[in-house]
Design a protein around this nucleic acid. Structure first.
Length: 542
RNA sequence: GCCGGGGUGGCCUAGUUGGUUAGGGCGCUGCACUCAUAAUGCAGAGGUCACGGGUCCGAACCCCGUCCCCGGCACCA
């Protein structure tokens, strides 16, 4: 999707649910979002990048109980953990909030009230499983019993191991509490529902124009072909945003979580000291382009539920939803309980964050499943980062440093400019397609061209062939330094630390993080002193 | 069951409206080079594009049928 340059862009990254540590599955969504933002800025866009912790909901309450601490304490612990991880990985949000903030409570209440006023939320009596031992209502997923259709063991909402049928509340036979194991029974309980069914026509036409990746759009369209059922948007919990006028109910987490996108924008505006009304530009007046980065697991919430809520409450609608595929490990599904998981901390103790950033986008197309294996990681680091990119930088900078000490005189050849220009175009179209693999492939191809060019011209011979040879040699070297400079600018979004290192080795004075794409075609300055070369990446051994 | 995405040389994979000898990477073989982290460069071998039929001057790509793999199926973050 081409984004109009005149509008500001708001990029959001899915909110991590803070009841556990960060793993590479999370990063598969956040790293590309960060890359996207960095490239957009280099292209001249005015971008705001936000995210935050999703702090409410039953799992956090249960996890707190299990540890004998408050939900606040659980949230605090993992909120800080995620903040540290993002910092360590150079995922630079302009604002990273949390959904239990005062501003998010206020915005959620405002939106829910608006939905009630507009007639999109109604009251309904439902049967709710109640555990007498735990003394509380149970969400359907914490109810276990027998399927009334096939007799298999089933969950409260679905016969997940038997016939696969969806179960209505109250249908399951011999319900038990999954938490304590004792018998549960059903009680009548008042809940509030969101009239999703009223938005069917709206969603069908909305999805036709929605930008982003095809997987998100296709999944969502599929839902609109079926009957859209109304959503129960309240829960019997203490922890969460109180439903207006009801002290005993909180709103369902999927209501207040995406509203975080709005309240975090407000918080950012406030933090920047701008006019408090500035956020309206993004969320009320349609004056910005809104892009959501998510995983395929929450497409339903972002492409169906969320736009319907926004529409119903009179807010601006997202322009694009970019959904990344799930991560597998050695071909197997992620599973914390089976230990089939790679934690971010574990990774960062052993490797540089930029190698992970590179791997995550280089390994597979964004919308496809990514099958992580240490073997494929080592191959990419050793054969691509060390052998192609690191080697190009090291051989050329070393050679120049030793023989010239500074960038030599010479003109940039047409062939080199053409190659850089081609790469620039490939990078831009990769962004329009949300294909981050195409970005790294294009830049690696440019590095490959650099190696090939250097090899072909054999400057190590020229340098020994008198004054004429030395002059010619300098010209060659300058051309390859220009290629490295271009690689730096284009790859900064993927490996910000490493490219800053190269930038400094080249003796550049500016900041590679804020350099624009226009710099690509500006010849590197002759006479600029190089820094003492250092290996860029270390080989990793199996 | 329904829906979606796939099945391309030993492995991974590109192929956007059908059009010259189906691209790339890993691995493999040979040669060159020594500035560089035994890194690089050049060249080469290797494919009935799941299977059967059809449309067309022409199909990996379109249509029909068959087989296989993966994912989703709603209140789950």
């Amino acid at each position: 999707m081409k984004i109009p340059l005149k509008k500001p862009v708001l990029v959001t990254s899915a909110l991590p649910y803070v009841n556990g540590e960060c793993h590479i599955g999370h990063l598969r969504t956040y790293v590309p979002a960060d890359i996207y933002v960095r490239v957009l800025r280099k292209m001249g866009y005015d971008v705001v990048f936000i995210s935050g912790s999703d702090t409410h909901g039953t799992p956090i309450v249960l996890s707190a109980e299990a540890q004998g601490i408050t939900p606040q304490a659980v949230v605090e612990k993992y909120h800080q953990h995620f903040k540290r991880m993002f910092q360590a990985l150079n995922v630079n949000f302009d604002y990273y909030g949390r959904t239990d903030s005062e501003s998010n409570h206020r915005r959620t209440e405002e939106i829910v009230k608006k939905l009630i006023d507009n007639g999109y939320v109604y009251k309904k009596e439902t049967k709710q499983a109640f555990c007498n031992t735990c003394g509380r209502f149970l969400p359907d997923r914490y109810v276990e019993g027998k399927c009334p259709y096939c007799g298999a063991i089933a969950r409260g909402d679905e016969c997940d191991q038997g016939c696969g049928k969806h179960l209505e509340p109250g249908e399951i036979i011999e319900p038990r509490c999954k938490i304590c194991g004792s018998e549960a029974d059903f009680k009548e309980q008042e809940q509030f529902y969101f009239k999703l069914s009223a938005f069917a026509d709206f969603l069908i036409s909305y999805l036709d124009h929605l930008g982003g990746t095809l997987n998100a759009r296709n999944y969502a369209k599929e839902w609109t072909r079926k009957e859209l059922r109304d959503w129960c948007v309240t829960r019997n919990l203490e922890w969460g945003v109180k439903f207006p006028g009801r002290g005993d109910l909180v709103v369902y987490v999927w209501v207040d979580a995406p509203i975080g996108y709005i309240s975090f924008t407000e918080d950012l505006i406030k933090e920047k000291g701008e006019d408090e009304k500035e956020w309206r530009k993004y969320w009320k007046e349609n004056k910005a382009t809104i892009v959501h980065f998510i995983g395929t697991d929450i497409i339903y919430h972002h492409c169906i539920f969320w736009p319907a809520m926004l529409k119903g409450a009179g807010y601006s609608l997202p322009d694009a939803v970019v959904a990344s595929g799930m991560v597998k490990i050695d071909g197997k599904t992620f599973s914390k309980s089976r230990g089939n998981v790679v934690w971010a901390t574990e990774f960062l103790e052993r490797f540089h964050p930029d190698t992970l950033r590179y791997y995550l986008v280089a390994q597979s197309s964004h919308t496809k499943e990514l099958d992580f294996s240490w073997d494929s990681f080592y191959t990419r680091v050793n054969h691509e980062l060390v052998a192609i990119l690191g080697n190009l930088v090291h051989r050329v900078v070393s050679f120049t440093y030793k023989n010239f000490g500074a960038v030599p005189e010479g003109d940039i050849e047409e062939e080199v400019f053409a190659q850089i220009e081609l790469t620039r175009e490939e990078v831009i179209s990769a962004m329009e397609e949300y294909e981050f693999k195409k970005l790294v492939d294009a830049v690696m191809k440019l590095a490959y061209f650099g190696n090939s060019f250097f090899q072909r011209e054999e400057p190590w011979h020229l340098i020994k062939e008198g004054e004429k040879g030395r002059e010619r040699c300098g010209g060659i070297v300058k051309n390859v330094l220009q290629i490295i400079k271009a690689v730096c600018i284009l790859m900064e979004a993927v490996m910000p630390d490493k490219m800053a290192e190269v930038w400094s080795q080249l003796g550049m004075e500016s900041d590679v993080h804020s350099v624009m794409l226009d710099e690509l075609m500006m010849p590197i300055k002759s006479g600029q002193t190089l820094k003492k070369p250092k290996k860029l990446f270390e080989r990793v051994e199996v």
